[in-house]
Design a protein around this nucleic acid. Structure first.
Lengths: 331, 331
DNA sequence: AAAACTTCTGTGAACGTGCACAGTATGGCT
DNA sequence: AGCCATACTGTGCACGTTCACAGAAGTTTT
């Protein structure tokens, strides 16, 4: 019960391998008669091309690898991944490419990724949440095309990316607070070696200028626990805070817990704004006012960049997509 | 600038292809002298085996495909996926296997999956959240080994799986409610064509017997919105409910919203119990009392089954792991 | 009528591996 | 000395495809 090969199809259709191959690869020169005969033979035999054999000669693998650089425990705590994976699977499938997942959380992982990619086992690389100065980046220089969902700090000009306009989003939220008449507006940022960490803080200070003092700024690491910690810290430093912009919904959920523990009412005493418009934003109490990132569009744009590069484009331009303020009960 | 082949390594080491191949594949007959020469040659040339060429002759692909059967929009709304993906990547990598992701949400997807798997492009299949009677199952019969994370209804004896003991978990929660002195205990189930949907309801009725009337049971589809809807429905039907066991944390978050809207206090008026101990359970207000599933262990067990089958095991037994009651503020 | 295209087809070589097999030392045993 | 096992090495073939090339058949141009 061996799997049928291209020879079997050719024999069944009464033509040669070459003709079948041409049909399969969309070459224009194949007669209508041969075409129907081959198509019938294919469906009769249940033939599928052997990708291994094909890649051996074409030097292409038919797969793209998604490299996730978060340390393992945190991976996926951020719900954005799912959209990207979903969109990637779908768009790649349309181009007959499959999606391989790899992690680059520790040194061993990273080495595996480098071996894999430099070994020519992928036609493209999809980077996710790569931190500044990741050693992976140098190793990936010479391989197949790579793009990132979200900018890679320090490589903005070498690794194409699609991202939400984090800075704009932060400005939207901060301006909203100002418009509400809040006077003491604090911020909980993300890690300062990530684009979201940096840009959202920049947007915040864009609006507040010198009123954004360091006493009003605390840092988190995207986790819920860190949001809670940072909020507690802010309340201790500056008790009269009346608004806080938290750089992610998950951290905002933590901040809400800290505020509740401190007996502050939201939004009456303290207005809280999140970022991401992830599903957490709906399950908190009160539901979070937040900044919506066009996740699906970002993912689509990222993949479009990668597909263009794989198809031979020399260079592509980064894509920056606008954010949107979503008003709910927390501010 | 061509990638080095096994020939280049052999030449550099002064031996023949065969010897290099033997070293690579762990054959015992290779002299110490040859061994060091080859190892040096490999690192000097930066050689990596060409997997395409290898699979062409071995008939193995070095990859496992994870097939996710949820309709697209819902995919990943359940946070359990992340653990499975993480564990899968890690354990497969240890066996030099890579993880390919595919979706089987609609007919076109499913056909692609079948073509892929029957075409021999994967050494194993990892099924996730496959619904009863999914046409995919028949098509996968004759292919490479397949396992499922969570039982596949109707195929319990043909597709090996690892799962949490859903029925036990449901009993634990229900008994806890009874122990608290609650009298009118309702339940919101998952879809009745999923094992979690069925088994958790069974555990519920195990404990309550005829007290579990249909007026006290409503059905959801795992989404937060469906939990909210089901809770509203239950309150309308049976206003004097004093406890509700919700078959997932996400649906429980929805139920909490409905209870709040109806002016019921949790847990004073109505005790709420969830299932999964997912991250949502912490961001709700009040935090959810829930049933912890040993997600990591389940994922590990599932992969162990698959790896055994890939390594040639004839048959393996399903694994059922105990659950644990986690008491928080909602009950 | 010959030449020059156009459209289509078949064939041999190559891609880089693993595996079966044949072969070569080396050393111990009779 | 002869024999046989043990430890190791090299070689040819096959895996299933694509691609370049040569060539056939039919059609248009010269």
């Amino acid at each position: 019960m061996k799997r049928p090969t291209i020879h079997d199809v050719a024999a069944a259709a009464g033509v040669s391998r070459g003709t079948v191959s041409r049909l399969l690869n969309g070459d224009k020169y194949v007669s209508p008669k041969a075409r129907v005969a081959i198509e019938r033979a294919i469906s009769e035999t249940g033939y599928t091309v052997n990708r291994a054999a094909r890649s051996l000669v074409t030097q292409r693998t038919g797969s793209v690898v998604m490299v996730m650089s978060e340390p393992h425990e945190k991976l996926f705590e951020d719900p954005n991944y799912s959209t990207l994976i979903r969109v990637a699977i779908r768009m790649l499938a349309e181009h007959d490419l499959s999606l391989v997942m790899m992690m680059a959380g520790d040194e061993a992982d990273r080495e595996r990724v480098v071996r894999y990619v430099r070994g020519g086992h992928a036609d493209g690389v999809l980077l996710v949440s790569t931190h500044a100065g990741d050693p992976l980046l140098d190793a990936l220089q010479s391989g197949p095309p790579a793009v990132s969902c979200g900018a890679v700090i320090g490589r903005e000009n070498v690794i194409p990316y699609a991202t939400a306009d984090d800075r704009l989003g932060a400005r939207q939220m901060t301006e909203y607070f100002v418009g509400l008449g809040r006077r003491r507006i604090a911020m909980i940022t993300g890690p300062m070696d990530t684009p979201g960490g940096i840009q959202r803080l920049e947007g915040f200070t864009d609006v507040l200028g010198r009123r954004a003092t360091s006493k009003l700024i605390a840092h988190g690491d995207w986790t819920q626990a860190s949001g809670e910690r940072a909020m507690t810290e802010l309340l201790a430093r500056t008790p009269d805070i009346d608004a806080v912009f938290v750089a992610s919904d998950l951290m905002a959920a933590g901040a809400l817990a800290a505020l509740r523990a401190a007996g502050r009412r939201v939004p009456d005493d303290v207005a809280v704004g999140g970022f991401d418009d992830s599903s957490v934003a709906l399950s908190t109490h009160p539901p979070l006012t937040t900044i919506r990132q066009p996740l699906a569009e970002m993912a689509q744009a990222t993949l479009r960049l990668l597909l263009e590069l794989i198809d031979g484009a020399e260079q592509v331009d980064p894509v920056i997509l606008p954010t949107e303020l979503v008003i709910r009960a927390s501010a």
